[in-house]
């Protein structure tokens, strides 16, 4: 190691520095490629011709551009039924999630609240200990939630972890603001909706993203409590197609058996494309807030 008085040595490029920089660039390129390539590959397979896919010609870009598999999938009714269900669960679920998270986080963030410590403890306790699968299953089914659309919304109403993120954001608001509002005679509902919530918009954006993604991706709840095809969300449908090798899509169309075996892997990849598109569109939009949300969670969580 050398320590000169002046800034001169910066210009001296040593072979080790070059290797070091090259390693970093290589590492980053690999990281980006392994994260992006699988999706490009899936997309390319789904819009290539069945024959090219079968020969194993598709590696990066589509070969013999062809939308047959895409058409087959998009004409399948159950896909749209499950998509519609997921849309409903995600929209209503996320709105309820965010509202109830604010309702939980705001009182827990108020320093003057006389039950603050106790309530915070009861909340944190649920993160580390739970009744487990079976008691929850019995209670949820006994409450009449089995095969009800509300099962995708009510039992997953509040995530304690997200409440803590939200609570930290409320706590970061200057206390004087609350005091002034209280002196003006505003009650806590008014303060929450008109003052506190507008001030934590970036955090709420992140929470909305987290909740929306979990509602959209929720497979577990549906697996346990939903058996009617008319109410199943997209993830259950995807599981049948992607992991249980269900031929339901190809069977409905009038393709001969040779074409069926050709297109079955394509059909699956088209389903992946269809399922992933909404996520790909939303994540970049919210990404500038992600850091903030994650950091707040880490501080308290």
């Amino acid at each position: 190691m050398y320590r000169n008085e002046s800034g001169v040595p910066e210009k001296k490029i040593q072979p080790w520095d070059f290797i070091f920089d090259a390693t970093i660039i290589l590492f980053l390129v690999i990281a980006v490629v392994i994260c992006v390539y699988p999706f490009i590959y899936v997309l390319s397979v789904s819009v290539s011709s069945g024959a090219a896919v079968n020969r194993g010609d598709v590696m990066l870009l589509p070969v013999d551009l062809n939308f047959e598999a895409m058409k087959t999938v998009l004409h399948y009714k159950q896909l749209w039924i499950s998509y519609g269900n997921t849309f409903f669960y995600t929209l209503v679920g996320t709105v309820c999630n965010v509202i109830f998270t604010c309702l939980a986080a705001y009182p827990l963030s108020r320093k003057k609240f006389f039950l603050r410590r106790q309530m915070n403890f009861l909340l944190a306790f649920t993160m580390y200990f739970s009744g487990g699968l079976i008691p929850i299953y019995i209670i949820v089914t006994r409450l009449g939630f089995y095969n009800s659309r509300w099962v995708m919304i009510v039992p997953v109403l509040i995530s304690a972890y997200n409440v803590m993120i939200c609570r930290s954001a409320f706590e970061a608001i200057s206390e004087e603001l609350f005091e002034e509002a209280a002196i003006e005679g505003a009650n806590d509902f008014y303060i929450l909706t008109k003052i506190a919530v507008p001030l934590i918009k970036p955090t709420l954006a992140v929470l909305t993203l987290y909740y929306a993604v979990s509602r959209y991706n929720d497979f577990y709840t549906a697996m346990l409590y939903i058996s009617e095809p008319g109410k199943e969300p997209l993830q259950v449908f995807l599981r049948r197609i992607l992991l249980q090798a269900s031929m339901e899509i190809t069977q409905t169309t009038n393709i001969n058996m040779g074409a069926v075996s050709q297109s079955s892997i394509q059909v699956r990849y088209v389903c992946i494309v269809v399922a992933v598109i909404p996520i790909m569109l939303i994540v970049p939009l919210v990404q500038k807030y992600l850091v903030q949300g994650t950091m707040l969670g880490a501080v308290k969580g």
Binding site: P38, F39, F219, L238, V283, Q287
Partner: peptide, 23 residues
């Protein structure tokens, strides 16, 4: 670069497992 690497995190377990299984 960071956005590219976030994407897989938000993909559902079903899709990730479906990709693993089919790849």
């Amino acid at each position: 670069v960071q956005v590219c690497t976030y994407l897989p995190y938000f993909i559902s377990t079903v899709v990730v497992c479906g990709m693993i299984n089919n790849f």
